[in-house]
Nucleic acid binder design. Structure first.
Length: 248
DNA sequence: AAATTATGCAACCGCCTCCCC
DNA sequence: GGGGGAGGCGGTTGCATAATT
C-alpha cells in the first residue's frame, strides 16, 4: 500500500532553489497570499513540490525573517525554552521573532549543543553530565530571569501520547520560570481561572504570582503560540499544560 | 597549492495531526 | 465516527564553504 506521494515527484525539481524560482514564489505569494501549498506550485509556474515551496518561503523568503547571527540573549532563551519544551522547535521559534524552527534546529545542533557540553551539561537533559553537580542549577548562571517555581514541577501533557517517545518530561524537575516578553500573554484570554493570577503585579526579581502551584498554565499560549501557532491551543483544551504534580 | 577534514545550513523525507466531508 | 487530504513538524541528508594538514 503505502502513502501516496505529496506531489508528482517525476516532474518536480529538487535541490537548491534558483533566483528565478524564488522570484516566482515571492511574487505569487505577494499577489495571492499563503495557502493551499499543494496547488501553489502549478499556479505559480513552479516545478516544485508544494511542501518544498512552503519550506522555502517559511525558512528563507519570508520578509519578516531576521537573518544573521544569534545574539547571546537568543542563545540563552533557546536553551531555556529547550529545557522546558525539548525538541519542539516550532514552539521555540514562536518565541523568537524572525527566527524559524529550521534555523533554530540547525543552530542548536551546530552551536548550542557544543556550548552546553562545554559547560558540562547534557544538551538533551540539561543536567550535569558527570552527575557530580546535583546541586548545580539546570541552566547556566548566566541565565538571568530564571526564578524558582516553588514546589511546582512541570510536564508537557501532549507528550503523554507519544508512547514514551519523550521520556524526558515526567522525570524532569523543571523548577523554572522565565521572564516572558509580556506577562499578559501567559494565559489564554479564555482561561478565566488563570487570568486573575496573570494580572497580579510582579517584579522581575521575585517569583511571578502567576506561578500558582494549584493553577494550570498553558505552555502553548505562554511560549509558542504568539506567532500565530495557535492551532495547537484551541483554548487550551487538554493540550500542552504545565500540570502541578499533586494533580497527577 | 593541493588534498583532506570539519562545519554550517538549505532542503528533503516521512510521520503525525488537524480538518473537512 | 471514520477516512482521506493537506499542512506542519522533527530528524536527517547532502552540498558548499572554511579550516587544517
Amino acid at each position: 500500500m503505502g502513502r501516496s506521494p505529496c506531489c508528482e515527484k517525476a516532474h518536480t525539481n529538487k535541490g537548491a532553489w534558483t533566483k528565478e524560482e524564488d522570484q516566482r514564489l515571492i511574487s505569487y505569494i505577494k499577489a495571492h497570499g499563503e495557502g493551499c501549498w499543494r496547488s501553489l506550485p502549478k499556479a505559480a509556474g513552479l516545478l516544485r513540490c508544494g511542501k518544498s515551496c512552503r519550506l522555502r518561503w517559511i525558512n528563507y523568503l519570508r520578509p519578516d525573517l531576521k537573518r544573521g547571527n544569534f545574539t547571546e540573549e537568543e542563545d540563552e532563551l533557546i536553551i531555556k525554552l529547550h529545557s522546558l519544551l525539548g525538541n519542539k522547535w516550532s514552539l521555540i521559534a514562536g518565541r523568537l521573532p524572525g527566527r524559524t524552527d529550521n534555523e533554530i534546529k540547525n543552530y542548536w545542533n551546530t552551536h548550542i549543543k557544543r556550548k552546553l557540553l562545554n559547560r558540562g551539561l547534557d544538551p538533551q537533559t540539561h543536567r550535569p553530565i558527570n552527575g557530580g553537580g546535583e546541586s548545580q542549577p539546570l541552566l547556566s548562571n548566566a541565565v538571568e530571569n530564571v526564578t524558582p517555581m516553588h514546589g511546582v514541577k512541570a510536564m508537557i501533557k501532549a507528550d503523554d501520547n507519544n508512547g514514551g517517545k519523550n521520556q524526558r518530561c515526567p522525570d524532569l524537575n523543571l523548577d523554572l520560570s522565565i521572564s516572558l516578553p509580556s506577562f499578559s500573554s501567559w494565559h489564554c484570554s479564555a482561561s478565566s481561572t488563570s487570568s486573575s493570577a496573570a494580572s497580579t503585579s510582579t517584579t522581575s526579581s521575585s517569583p511571578p504570582a502567576m506561578v500558582n502551584p494549584n493553577q494550570t498554565v498553558c505552555v502553548c499560549c505562554s511560549f509558542g503560540s504568539g506567532g500565530g501557532e495557535g492551532r495547537i491551543c484551541s483554548n487550551c483544551q487538554g493540550f500542552r499544560y504545565f500540570i502541578p504534580l499533586q494533580e497527577r
